[in-house]
């Protein structure tokens, strides 16, 4: 009747090692705990773990850096007469600018054989030849091209470049060929007057894009607020709610499209035309075209009443 049985420790390690079943039993609990914790952690940090590890390279890696706030300043006017005379400094500046802005299409030597311009129609102008120029080859004419671009072609306006830089480019281009015509005094004066070159301009004020986004949304706050009320309006009118369900991609946007513009309000025929414009804008579904006149009238009256 003795009771000399030894009670086991919490874990009897010798026995555990000898019996794989018990070993498994103990390990398994921790395995499960580990899997649960690890799994939760893994799922939690999935976006980080699976993110692209290769860092972007080169100029494509240029990150988005918002613009600094800057007040517009008075830009000095330029002396057209002075700028129209080429000098080494201007040509050297023009060369760098040409290479970064123009060479991709017009080619390093201006033959119109740039790689990027290979597929363009019409092809980039050969700056060495004298044929086929649309605006002409005088300084004033070249300047007009840079200021306005050539509509219908890939030649865009470069009006955002400072005036002096544009003159520098022009002078560099004119070194490609010896037969560029010379402007008369009158033509230069005309250029000055037309684009107000000697007067000087104010540069534009700048604010960060983020601020501009806030400004814009604040200015539209009233309309936005009104648009967000559409669901409460629809709760009171089940018939129109049904029409909305048929035609709207998004109730709020659909209602907004109606309230941002009031030209449809005065007459039913205007309303119908407005509906068609909305469909063409993909602002509402094409099912709007299948609405019966009665439904359209219902919608018209409803929108008028809550406007």
């Amino acid at each position: 009747m003795g009771n000399n049985h030894k009670y086991e420790d919490e874990i009897n390690f010798k026995a555990v090692i000898k019996t794989p079943i018990r070993w498994f039993g103990i390990v398994y609990i921790f395995f499960i705990i580990f899997v649960i914790i690890g799994g939760l952690f893994y799922i939690d940090s999935l976006p980080v773990l699976t993110a692209n590890k290769v860092p972007p390279e080169g100029k494509f890696a240029e990150p988005f850096k918002d613009i600094a706030k800057k007040k517009g300043i008075k830009l000095e006017g330029v002396d057209v007469k002075l700028l129209s005379k080429p000098n080494d400094e201007l040509i050297a500046q023009g060369k760098t600018l040409y290479e970064s802005n123009c060479a991709s299409c017009h080619g390093a030597e201006g033959k119109g054989d740039g790689i990027a311009g290979a597929g363009l129609n019409p092809a980039p102008r050969n700056l060495q030849s004298s044929d086929g120029w649309k605006n002409g080859r005088k300084i004033s004419q070249l300047y007009k091209t840079l200021e306005e671009g050539i509509p219908g072609t890939a030649m865009v306006a470069y009006e955002y470049l400072p005036i002096k830089e544009r003159f520098a480019i022009i002078h560099y281009i004119r070194t490609f060929s010896a037969d560029y015509p010379i402007d008369t005094e009158d033509e230069l004066k005309q250029l000055d007057i037309e684009y107000r070159l000697s007067e000087g301009k104010f540069s534009e004020n700048q604010i960060p894009v983020a601020l501009a986004m806030i400004k814009l949304s604040n200015e539209n706050q009233e309309l936005n607020k009104k648009a967000s009320k559409i669901n409460t309006f629809l709760d009171d009118n089940q018939a129109v709610a049904e029409i909305f369900r048929k035609i709207a991609f998004d109730y709020e946007l659909t209602y907004y499209a109606f309230i941002k513009n009031s030209e449809w309000m005065n007459e039913f025929s205007n309303f119908e035309a407005y509906l068609n414009r909305l469909v063409q804008s993909n602002a509402i579904k094409t099912t709007a075209l299948n609405l019966s006149t009665k439904e359209k009238e219902q919608l018209f009256e409803f929108l008028k009443s809550i406007n």
Binding site: N220, L223, N224, T254, Y256, A257, K260, Y274, A283
Partner: peptide, 8 residues
């Protein structure tokens, strides 16, 4: 064409 997107 009419822009239906809210300026928000």
């Amino acid at each position: 064409l009419i822009n239906p997107v809210l300026m928000n």
